[in-house]
Design a protein around this nucleic acid. Structure first.
Lengths: 128, 128
DNA sequence: TGCGCAGTTGACTTTTACGTAAATCAGCGA
DNA sequence: TCGCTGATTTACGTAAAAGTCAACTGCGCA
């Protein structure tokens, strides 16, 4: 496992711009360490970036992704805090479940559209 | 099944503003009929609106949702057109599959976070 | 017939998530 | 020491997806 990554290494690996990565830092999503002025990304920053991009693909806003990332972090040991965190986890799970359902529904309609296309192709094949 | 719906009926049912619905019309996603100047939405428009909002929840842009809606519509009978449509369907399916995978991954991490929380709660319970 | 309400149009504004450009800096190989 | 390469900071720009506001219209009804 590498110690650190430069910003351009990460842009190449994930297909995003330096601007994007710095923007996520500004938003408080990642906190790379510095050597002088230049950023050095640890493996944990890389994991975070992967999670951020995953969240983006699912249509979560930066604010929502921030919330999700907060959830991943272990909460401070206090009982109230932990229960609050458990509640948040369930909220996020519900949102994900909704998205999962949306995907299933869309997939089903794709299947129907495909069937219809194949049916039409068959007709054309027969009539030729 | 109702014949038509007014715009406010749909805003209430789907929790969106009239501006939003008119915006989707401007973008060519729905084409309600008119009685004079006022819009009348048929059941098919309502179905379209449902599909649009589903697409939005999944993080598709209006342009992408437009593409998906095009896919639902049966293509013109020509063979080339139908094959093109089949290719598009598979593209969209791949995107959905990616999202599905992203959901699974996020769900798993949620589970881990929950485990960790429950573990901490157990520790607290024991030590009391 | 006058009022209020629901609907429409058009223009301007806002928020989010970056893109882009300019100026600056730090290391390093010739 | 020069110049290049890659990184940084600051600031302005922008596209998408609506929000907001103002002015107008038509209709049911008291």
């Amino acid at each position: 496992m590498r110690e650190t990554y430069t910003i351009t290494e990460l842009t190449k690996e994930f297909g995003v711009s330096t601007r994007t990565i710095r923007f996520y830092e500004d938003e408080g999503l990642i906190k790379p360490i510095r050597r002088g002025r230049t950023r050095l990304f640890r493996p944990s920053d890389r994991v975070l970036l992967r999670q951020i991009l995953r969240g983006k693909r699912l249509g979560f806003s930066i604010a929502e992704i921030k919330e999700i990332i907060e959830v991943y972090k272990a909460p401070s040991g206090e009982e109230g805090q932990i229960n609050l965190m458990l509640a948040r986890i369930n909220e996020k799970r519900d949102e994900l479940e909704q998205k999962r359902q949306d995907i299933e529904d869309t997939m089903r309609e794709m299947d129907e559209a495909e069937e219809s296309c194949l049916g039409r192709l068959a007709e054309l094949g027969v009539s030729q």
